[in-house]
């Protein structure tokens, strides 16, 4: 029984951590849908956003104000990216765009550190990383309050975004651009505006993900690499699917924790770092478009 409860704890902790992978993966999906490119700068955006947020807090701004100022800042980053990077590269190959996002990543990392310094910051959201007492008492499970909050916040954000895409005009525009940018522009959907919206949304997602991770592990450069965990998430879920990002994140989160605990010891531990990539490779062999990846619809 104790064994089983422990297993449940591991899985729940994994799933909750997984929602955060989903959140970062969502940032990638947004940009992939709109411009068919894998945005390597997403990790840097996470780092940039949360470092800016902590920076504003240190300037003495209240939590909420800092949050919204950072969102504005991410909007500005999106605007500059659209104007200075995407627009000049319009109609270039997807590889060119990919390289540009790698460059953009370096620029953002550099800017963030130049502005706010390089030391690790503490981010206190007022939620401790300790087990929630009533769950501990009633079910005998140790579930971290921070994990649970992060999971809930991620879930809410994901649902809101999914609803926006499905039911708003902007969402329709985005899905149209994702399907066929040429046709979208032929009926008057302004590609530039859609890109700006998408990059801003990706920026907000990056900020929230960065805050959740930063609260646990400190706001530091390692966030950039952590964000790349989204890569196996996307390989499993599919690059262009929001449900895929969610399910992929949960699968990666849960499986990496379970593997770490039960398989890790045979490898001397710390397999969390690479196990998801191994899983991704098996997925590539089995189902290259991912669980929810859009199979290309082609009439013959």
């Amino acid at each position: 029984m104790i064994e089983f409860l422990f297993f449940i704890e591991v899985v729940v902790a994994g799933l909750l951590a997984g929602t955060m992978y989903s959140l970062v993966a969502l940032g990638f999906v947004l940009i992939y849908k709109a411009s068919s490119t894998f945005n390597f700068a997403q990790g840097a955006m996470v780092f940039f956003a949360v470092l800016a947020f902590v920076g504003f807090m240190e300037l003495g701004l209240p939590f909420v104000v800092s949050f919204f100022v950072t969102i504005l800042l991410m909007g500005l980053v999106g605007f500059c990216t659209e104007r200075l990077v995407l627009k000049p590269l319009m109609n270039q190959s997807e590889d060119t765009l990919l390289m540009a996002t790698i460059g953009l990543g370096f620029v953002l990392e550099g800017l963030a550190q130049a502005a706010w310094g390089v030391e690790v910051r503490r981010l206190d959201l007022g939620i401790g990383d300790f087990p929630i007492p009533w769950i501990m008492d009633s079910a005998g499970l140790f579930i971290s309050a921070l994990d649970l909050t992060a999971g809930l916040v991620s879930a809410i954000l994901i649902i809101v975004l999914a609803l926006i895409f499905k039911y708003t005009k902007m969402g329709l525009g985005l899905r149209a651009v994702a399907d066929d940018p040429g046709a979208a522009s032929s009926i008057g959907i302004p590609l530039g505006n859609i890109m700006l919206l998408v990059w801003t949304a990706a920026g907000i997602v990056a900020l929230v993900a960065g805050m959740m991770w930063g609260a646990r592990a400190g706001v530091q450069f390692a966030l950039v690499d952590l964000a790349l965990k989204a890569l196996p998430v996307l390989i499993i879920g599919g690059f262009s699917s929001i449900p895929g990002a969610i399910v992929g994140g949960l699968i990666i989160g849960a499986s990496e924790k379970v593997l770490e605990v039960y398989v890790g010891p045979y490898f001397g531990g710390a397999i969390e770092g690479w196990a998801p990539y191994v899983l991704a490779i098996f997925f590539l062999l089995w189902r290259p478009e991912g669980l929810y990846g859009e199979k290309i619809i082609r009439r013959v």
Partner: peptide, 15 residues
């Protein structure tokens, strides 16, 4: 050049 993943009606509304 329809938006293949959108429904017929969504395509038209996008116009």
């Amino acid at each position: 050049r329809c938006f293949g993943h959108l429904t017929v009606e969504e395509n038209i509304i996008a116009g």
